[in-house]
Simulated scan of single mutants.
Amino acid sequence: MFATRFAPSPTGRLHRGHAFSALTAHAAARHVGGRFVLRIEDIDATRCRPEFEAAIRDDLAWLGLDWEQPVRRQSEHLADYHAALDSLIARGLTYRCFRTRKEIAQDIAGAPHGAMETWRGAPLPADEEAARLAAGESFAWRLSLDAAERALVGDLSFVEEGEGPEGEHGIIPIDPTLGGDVVLARKDVGVAYHLAVVVDDALQGISHVIRGRDLFQATHVQRRLQALLNLPAPVYRHHRLLLGADGRRYAKRDRAETLAELRAGGMTPEALRRELGFD
Protein backbone atom coordinates (compact mmCIF):
# COMPACT_ATOMS: atom_id res chain seq x y z
CA MET A 1 0.00 0.00 0.00
CA PHE A 2 1.17 3.52 -0.78
CA ALA A 3 2.33 5.27 2.37
CA THR A 4 4.25 8.49 2.79
CA ARG A 5 5.13 10.83 5.62
CA PHE A 6 5.89 14.35 6.72
CA ALA A 7 8.58 14.28 9.38
CA PRO A 8 9.48 17.68 10.84
CA SER A 9 11.80 18.34 13.77
CA PRO A 10 10.23 20.56 16.46
CA THR A 11 13.08 23.06 16.53
CA GLY A 12 11.07 26.05 15.35
CA ARG A 13 7.83 27.12 13.68
CA LEU A 14 6.80 25.87 10.25
CA HIS A 15 7.08 28.16 7.21
CA ARG A 16 5.89 28.11 3.59
CA GLY A 17 8.54 25.57 2.60
CA HIS A 18 7.28 23.13 5.21
CA ALA A 19 3.71 23.73 4.10
CA PHE A 20 4.60 23.00 0.48
CA SER A 21 6.33 19.73 1.40
CA ALA A 22 3.52 18.58 3.71
CA LEU A 23 0.85 19.43 1.13
CA THR A 24 2.81 17.64 -1.60
CA ALA A 25 3.06 14.44 0.43
CA HIS A 26 -0.53 14.62 1.65
CA ALA A 27 -1.89 15.17 -1.87
CA ALA A 28 0.13 12.23 -3.21
CA ALA A 29 -1.28 9.91 -0.55
CA ARG A 30 -4.86 11.07 -0.97
CA HIS A 31 -4.62 10.80 -4.78
CA VAL A 32 -4.12 7.02 -4.58
CA GLY A 33 -6.07 6.36 -1.38
CA GLY A 34 -2.85 5.76 0.56
CA ARG A 35 -1.58 6.55 4.02
CA PHE A 36 -0.25 9.91 5.19
CA VAL A 37 1.89 9.73 8.33
CA LEU A 38 3.03 12.55 10.58
CA ARG A 39 6.27 11.73 12.40
CA ILE A 40 7.87 14.01 14.99
CA GLU A 41 11.65 13.73 14.71
CA ASP A 42 12.58 14.94 18.18
CA ILE A 43 15.66 12.91 19.09
CA ASP A 44 17.83 16.02 19.43
CA ALA A 45 16.90 16.96 22.98
CA THR A 46 19.24 19.97 22.87
CA ARG A 47 17.14 21.76 20.23
CA CYS A 48 13.63 20.27 20.18
CA ARG A 49 10.87 21.93 22.22
CA PRO A 50 7.35 20.70 23.18
CA GLU A 51 5.85 24.05 22.23
CA PHE A 52 7.16 23.69 18.68
CA GLU A 53 5.69 20.19 18.43
CA ALA A 54 2.27 21.50 19.46
CA ALA A 55 2.63 24.32 16.92
CA ILE A 56 3.42 21.83 14.14
CA ARG A 57 0.17 20.00 14.74
CA ASP A 58 -1.77 23.26 14.91
CA ASP A 59 -0.22 24.54 11.67
CA LEU A 60 -0.92 21.33 9.75
CA ALA A 61 -4.50 21.19 11.00
CA TRP A 62 -4.93 24.84 9.94
CA LEU A 63 -3.75 23.84 6.46
CA GLY A 64 -6.55 21.26 6.39
CA LEU A 65 -4.36 18.16 6.65
CA ASP A 66 -5.22 14.99 8.52
CA TRP A 67 -2.92 12.10 9.43
CA GLU A 68 -2.80 8.71 11.05
CA GLN A 69 -2.96 8.32 14.79
CA PRO A 70 -1.05 7.81 16.97
CA VAL A 71 1.79 10.06 15.84
CA ARG A 72 5.21 8.48 16.20
CA ARG A 73 7.57 10.58 18.30
CA GLN A 74 11.16 9.46 17.93
CA SER A 75 12.02 10.26 21.54
CA GLU A 76 9.61 7.51 22.62
CA HIS A 77 11.28 4.82 20.51
CA LEU A 78 14.99 5.12 21.27
CA ALA A 79 15.23 1.38 21.92
CA ASP A 80 14.43 0.69 18.25
CA TYR A 81 17.32 2.86 17.08
CA HIS A 82 19.77 1.51 19.62
CA ALA A 83 18.91 -2.04 18.58
CA ALA A 84 19.81 -1.15 14.99
CA LEU A 85 23.00 0.55 16.13
CA ASP A 86 23.96 -2.44 18.27
CA SER A 87 23.56 -4.77 15.29
CA LEU A 88 25.93 -2.62 13.21
CA ILE A 89 28.44 -2.46 16.07
CA ALA A 90 28.31 -6.24 16.56
CA ARG A 91 29.10 -6.79 12.88
CA GLY A 92 32.14 -4.52 12.96
CA LEU A 93 30.57 -1.90 10.70
CA THR A 94 31.20 1.03 13.03
CA TYR A 95 33.99 2.52 15.09
CA ARG A 96 34.40 4.99 17.92
CA CYS A 97 35.61 8.36 16.67
CA PHE A 98 37.12 10.67 19.27
CA ARG A 99 37.80 13.53 16.87
CA THR A 100 35.96 16.76 17.49
CA ARG A 101 34.02 18.61 14.81
CA LYS A 102 36.80 21.22 14.79
CA GLU A 103 39.48 18.60 14.16
CA ILE A 104 37.50 17.06 11.31
CA ALA A 105 36.84 20.52 9.84
CA GLN A 106 40.59 21.13 9.88
CA ASP A 107 41.16 17.83 8.06
CA ILE A 108 38.60 18.83 5.46
CA ALA A 109 40.09 22.30 5.02
CA GLY A 110 43.49 20.80 4.30
CA ALA A 111 42.19 18.18 1.87
CA PRO A 112 41.23 18.47 -1.83
CA HIS A 113 37.93 20.08 -2.79
CA GLY A 114 34.97 17.88 -2.00
CA ALA A 115 36.58 16.02 0.87
CA MET A 116 33.63 16.91 3.11
CA GLU A 117 31.62 14.23 1.36
CA THR A 118 34.37 11.61 1.46
CA TRP A 119 35.97 12.00 4.89
CA ARG A 120 36.95 8.64 6.27
CA GLY A 121 38.49 7.77 9.59
CA ALA A 122 39.48 4.53 11.26
CA PRO A 123 39.26 2.92 14.69
CA LEU A 124 42.05 3.67 17.09
CA PRO A 125 44.48 0.99 18.23
CA ALA A 126 42.86 -1.00 21.02
CA ASP A 127 45.16 0.27 23.77
CA GLU A 128 44.70 3.92 22.83
CA GLU A 129 40.93 3.51 22.58
CA ALA A 130 40.81 1.83 25.98
CA ALA A 131 42.84 4.65 27.52
CA ARG A 132 40.56 7.31 26.08
CA LEU A 133 37.45 5.48 27.26
CA ALA A 134 38.95 5.11 30.73
CA ALA A 135 39.62 8.86 30.74
CA GLY A 136 35.96 9.50 29.98
CA GLU A 137 36.56 11.16 26.60
CA SER A 138 33.52 11.74 24.39
CA PHE A 139 33.18 9.90 21.11
CA ALA A 140 30.75 9.35 18.26
CA TRP A 141 29.87 6.06 16.63
CA ARG A 142 30.60 6.37 12.92
CA LEU A 143 29.68 4.06 10.08
CA SER A 144 32.83 2.74 8.45
CA LEU A 145 32.55 3.09 4.68
CA ASP A 146 35.42 0.65 4.25
CA ALA A 147 33.65 -2.00 6.35
CA ALA A 148 30.30 -1.27 4.66
CA GLU A 149 31.81 -1.76 1.20
CA ARG A 150 33.18 -5.14 2.27
CA ALA A 151 29.81 -6.18 3.73
CA LEU A 152 27.64 -5.18 0.78
CA VAL A 153 27.50 -7.39 -2.28
CA GLY A 154 26.60 -5.88 -5.65
CA ASP A 155 25.73 -2.35 -6.65
CA LEU A 156 23.11 -0.41 -4.75
CA SER A 157 20.61 2.01 -6.22
CA PHE A 158 17.33 3.72 -5.43
CA VAL A 159 14.30 4.71 -7.49
CA GLU A 160 13.80 8.45 -7.96
CA GLU A 161 10.32 9.36 -9.19
CA GLY A 162 10.87 13.07 -8.69
CA GLU A 163 14.00 14.94 -9.58
CA GLY A 164 17.33 15.56 -7.88
CA PRO A 165 19.25 18.86 -7.89
CA GLU A 166 20.86 18.03 -11.24
CA GLY A 167 17.75 16.55 -12.83
CA GLU A 168 18.46 13.01 -11.60
CA HIS A 169 15.51 10.69 -12.26
CA GLY A 170 14.88 6.97 -12.52
CA ILE A 171 17.32 4.38 -11.20
CA ILE A 172 20.06 6.22 -9.28
CA PRO A 173 23.25 4.28 -8.49
CA ILE A 174 24.51 4.84 -4.97
CA ASP A 175 27.67 6.90 -4.74
CA PRO A 176 29.62 5.05 -2.02
CA THR A 177 31.61 8.16 -1.12
CA LEU A 178 28.75 10.56 -0.38
CA GLY A 179 28.48 11.34 3.30
CA GLY A 180 31.80 9.79 4.24
CA ASP A 181 31.91 7.97 7.57
CA VAL A 182 28.65 9.42 8.86
CA VAL A 183 27.87 9.78 12.55
CA LEU A 184 25.29 7.25 13.75
CA ALA A 185 25.20 8.28 17.40
CA ARG A 186 26.86 10.72 19.77
CA LYS A 187 26.44 11.61 23.41
CA ASP A 188 24.87 15.05 22.99
CA VAL A 189 22.09 14.09 20.55
CA GLY A 190 21.96 10.31 20.98
CA VAL A 191 21.18 8.37 17.82
CA ALA A 192 21.62 10.47 14.68
CA TYR A 193 19.11 11.35 11.97
CA HIS A 194 20.24 8.94 9.23
CA LEU A 195 19.90 5.85 11.41
CA ALA A 196 16.61 6.85 13.04
CA VAL A 197 14.91 7.75 9.77
CA VAL A 198 15.61 4.44 8.01
CA VAL A 199 14.41 2.49 11.05
CA ASP A 200 11.23 4.57 11.24
CA ASP A 201 10.47 4.31 7.53
CA ALA A 202 10.71 0.53 7.73
CA LEU A 203 8.67 0.18 10.93
CA GLN A 204 5.95 2.49 9.63
CA GLY A 205 5.72 0.80 6.23
CA ILE A 206 6.65 3.92 4.28
CA SER A 207 6.58 3.04 0.58
CA HIS A 208 7.34 6.53 -0.79
CA VAL A 209 9.59 9.18 0.73
CA ILE A 210 8.45 12.57 -0.58
CA ARG A 211 10.69 15.45 0.44
CA GLY A 212 12.76 18.39 -0.80
CA ARG A 213 15.73 18.13 -3.13
CA ASP A 214 18.03 19.38 -0.37
CA LEU A 215 17.88 15.84 1.05
CA PHE A 216 18.68 14.09 -2.22
CA GLN A 217 22.29 13.34 -1.30
CA ALA A 218 21.20 12.01 2.10
CA THR A 219 19.37 9.26 0.21
CA HIS A 220 22.71 7.72 -0.75
CA VAL A 221 23.64 7.35 2.93
CA GLN A 222 20.20 6.11 3.93
CA ARG A 223 20.02 3.55 1.14
CA ARG A 224 23.35 2.14 2.30
CA LEU A 225 22.05 1.82 5.86
CA GLN A 226 18.86 0.13 4.62
CA ALA A 227 20.95 -2.49 2.86
CA LEU A 228 23.22 -3.06 5.86
CA LEU A 229 20.22 -3.44 8.18
CA ASN A 230 18.25 -5.56 5.68
CA LEU A 231 15.43 -3.01 5.59
CA PRO A 232 13.13 -2.40 2.61
CA ALA A 233 13.98 0.47 0.28
CA PRO A 234 11.20 3.02 -0.31
CA VAL A 235 10.71 4.81 -3.61
CA TYR A 236 11.96 8.40 -3.42
CA ARG A 237 10.24 11.45 -4.85
CA HIS A 238 12.25 14.62 -4.27
CA HIS A 239 10.41 17.83 -5.07
CA ARG A 240 11.52 21.35 -5.87
CA LEU A 241 12.41 23.73 -3.06
CA LEU A 242 10.16 26.68 -2.48
CA LEU A 243 12.05 29.96 -2.84
CA GLY A 244 11.36 33.34 -1.34
CA ALA A 245 11.36 36.68 -3.11
CA ASP A 246 15.14 36.89 -2.57
CA GLY A 247 15.66 33.64 -4.48
CA ARG A 248 16.72 31.74 -1.38
CA ARG A 249 14.90 28.72 -0.05
CA TYR A 250 12.84 29.15 3.06
CA ALA A 251 14.74 28.11 6.18
CA LYS A 252 14.27 28.38 9.94
CA ARG A 253 17.80 29.68 10.40
CA ASP A 254 17.01 32.64 8.11
CA ARG A 255 13.90 33.45 10.15
CA ALA A 256 11.56 32.75 7.26
CA GLU A 257 8.04 34.05 7.80
CA THR A 258 6.17 31.39 9.74
CA LEU A 259 2.70 30.02 9.15
CA ALA A 260 1.67 31.51 12.49
CA GLU A 261 2.78 34.94 11.26
CA LEU A 262 0.88 34.46 8.03
CA ARG A 263 -2.25 33.62 10.00
CA ALA A 264 -1.78 36.64 12.23
CA GLY A 265 -1.49 38.77 9.10
CA GLY A 266 -4.89 37.60 7.88
CA MET A 267 -3.94 34.89 5.38
CA THR A 268 -6.44 32.04 5.14
CA PRO A 269 -5.42 28.42 4.61
CA GLU A 270 -7.31 28.43 1.31
CA ALA A 271 -5.27 31.41 0.10
CA LEU A 272 -1.99 29.79 1.08
CA ARG A 273 -2.92 26.53 -0.61
CA ARG A 274 -3.71 28.41 -3.81
CA GLU A 275 -0.45 30.33 -3.57
CA LEU A 276 1.45 27.04 -3.27
CA GLY A 277 -0.43 25.42 -6.16
CA PHE A 278 -2.92 23.29 -4.24
CA ASP A 279 -6.36 24.48 -5.29
Rank of each mutant, 00 (worst) to 15 (best):
A19W: 02
F98V: 10
L243P: 06
D66K: 09
A79S: 15
A54S: 12
L156T: 05
L203V: 12
R253M: 09
L152W: 08
R35D: 00
G34E: 02
G244D: 06
P234F: 04
I172C: 02
G33C: 13
L241Y: 03
G162N: 05
W119I: 13
L133T: 12
L259W: 07
D59W: 03
A22L: 06
V183I: 15
D127M: 05
A135T: 12
G92W: 10
Q222E: 13
Y81N: 02
L276A: 02
L156A: 07
E137T: 09
E149S: 14
T11F: 04
S9R: 07
W62G: 04
H31C: 13
G265R: 14
G110K: 11
I40W: 03
H26Y: 15
G265K: 14
A196E: 01
H194S: 07
F6K: 02
D200W: 07
P10I: 00
E270L: 08
A22G: 04
D175L: 04
P8T: 00
E41T: 13
L243H: 14
G277D: 12
G167K: 07
R72F: 01
A202W: 06
A28N: 15
T258P: 05
S144R: 01
H208N: 07
E270K: 11
G34K: 05
G265C: 13
L259N: 04
S138W: 06
V183P: 02
F52D: 06
R16S: 10
V32E: 14
L156K: 02
V235Y: 05
R224Q: 07
H18F: 05
L225R: 05
A227N: 04
L60A: 03
Y193M: 00
V199I: 13
H82G: 08
L259V: 09
F52Q: 07
E270A: 15
D127W: 03
Q69R: 14
A111K: 12
A196W: 01
P173A: 14
